[in-house]
Design a protein around this nucleic acid. Structure first.
Lengths: 265, 265
DNA sequence: GAAGTACACAGTACGCCGTACTGAGTAAGG
DNA sequence: CCTTACTCAGTACGGCGTACTGTGTACTTC
């Protein structure tokens, strides 16, 4: 089984774990040496420090000074552990109230909060959530983020669409940023060094007449940013485009600023 | 080392491989039983049929009726093999000429071509490209896609920004679609069955008063699509938003349709 | 043509992974 | 008190990428 997927097993067991259902903890036998939270915290700390690849059952167990198989009495498997890790960091996200401010400001804040999540916990952008985890953290996050889209005259389904679109952009951007910095870390080379090495080789093999746009735009973009991809710039550029794109939906049927109404009570 | 990363080693060797530099193939010793293309094709076929996780050096070797270590005389390692796989499918993408048509039509075509790529080769959306691969396939792809953005009055850097934004959206959407269908395949349950099982459990643990928006919007969105996430709908919704977002850049300083000029000679 | 060398390919081995299974000891329920 | 349910340790299995070793082949050079 690969290592970075969530939600493999029994939904009932997973939900009970996510919500820390006390009726799901055993009533007999020897006292437990750990808690689910301790396991999750250890895994999160490990992932923060050494990346998702370092989160193996063996390493988490080692951090807790316990034998690997012991973890399986707290958590059904690694997929569920990842579910719990995600929900834990969702729960701890900062959620600034932004009621009363313009919708662009509100959505910019949501984007920023999610971007901050991926900066603090880069691994969380890489986890693939097969089914939504539906833990207390993700529900609270969803509620908070929907509030930023409330009262804009959108239908229920459109609110979900817009939020999905915005978050999907932020996650894609974060993934690109993480991959770029992982590349820098993997080999010692900086982007500059890498290009200095690859550039001349590429020039020898690539016919500039055959790919005029690629050569011109590629080198212009590379020169403007000192590297092949600048996630910081891509974020601000992309967020502006996303908000403009949502604007045509939100401000339809009226001049800029229309459609804004007080949120439902 | 994890399994789904590209570009680990020497850029010179990788570039020579990508461009099939004949001076890089050995001149002495016994005749080679395989070719780089044969190895790459076997890997792509395997990935298409059984997913990226099935692409192991052992499985690829098995498909070629060869011992695993033999592959290492064709390819420095698995990361480079993934680079070659990506470039190969890029090279084979359909590239419909769309000069002369409106920019929205052109960009919709680009999005569609990339979406088709991810449908035919779902694994290609999951590969994380640490550095751009710069093979003949990806350069040709880049050139073709830039052509769709040429003549719109964008600066060189803006052309790259817009393309990155568009492709990033398509890839994010494809990843979501693939994850959703992987979830369906992983356990036998359909989305409906999963919700039938998880829904009541969630209702028991979740206070609807505490999360009014989440409950209302979540169930509205779920009901509208018969599942938690409908990638088909998200694609059309998202693409419309992306194009609207790019429009404010492309059509700035004039009415709709302005900014369009014939491409540079 | 002989010698030397560069190479292809097979095989074995190492250190990782997730986790199934076994067995010993412990604390609560009846 | 005894039975039962549990925790935790240990071992083991089948997978992974790939380093290393050995054998035989075909080209290059003399």
């Amino acid at each position: 089984m690969p290592s970075d997927r969530t939600s493999a097993g029994d939904p009932a067991r997973t939900l009970a774990l996510l919500w820390r259902d006390p009726s799901a903890t055993p009533r007999r036998g020897p006292a437990r040496g750990l808690t689910v939270d301790a396991v999750v915290d250890a895994a999160v700390t490990l992932a923060d420090r050494e990346g998702l690849a370092a989160v193996t059952m063996r390493r988490v167990a080692q951090a807790l000074e316990v034998v690997p198989m012991t973890l399986y009495t707290y958590v059904p498997g690694k997929a569920e552990l990842l579910d719990l890790m995600l929900d834990a960091v969702y729960a701890r996200m900062e959620r600034a109230a932004s009621t009363g401010r313009p919708w662009r400001t509100r959505l910019t804040a949501i984007a920023g909060e999610n971007r901050a999540l991926f900066e603090i916990h880069p691994w969380s952008a890489a986890v693939s959530t097969l089914r939504p985890s539906l833990g207390p953290g993700s529900i609270a996050k969803y509620e908070h983020e929907l509030a930023a889209l409330d009262g804009l005259g959108l239908s229920d389904v459109e609110m979900d669409d817009c939020l999905t679109h915005l978050l999907s952009f932020v996650q894609a951007n974060a993934r690109a940023a993480i991959e770029a910095s992982a590349a820098r870390a993997a080999d010692g080379r900086t982007d500059q060094q890498w290009w200095d090495q690859a550039g001349p080789l590429l020039a020898r093999v690539l016919d500039p007449g055959a790919y005029p746009l690629a050569v011109r735009i590629g080198s212009a973009a590379g020169a403007a940013r000192g590297s092949a991809h600048d996630p910081e710039h891509a974020f601000h550029f992309g967020l502006a485009r996303v908000l403009d794109g949502l604007a045509t939906l939100i401000e339809r049927g009226g001049p800029a600023g229309a459609g804004e109404r007080p949120p439902a009570p």
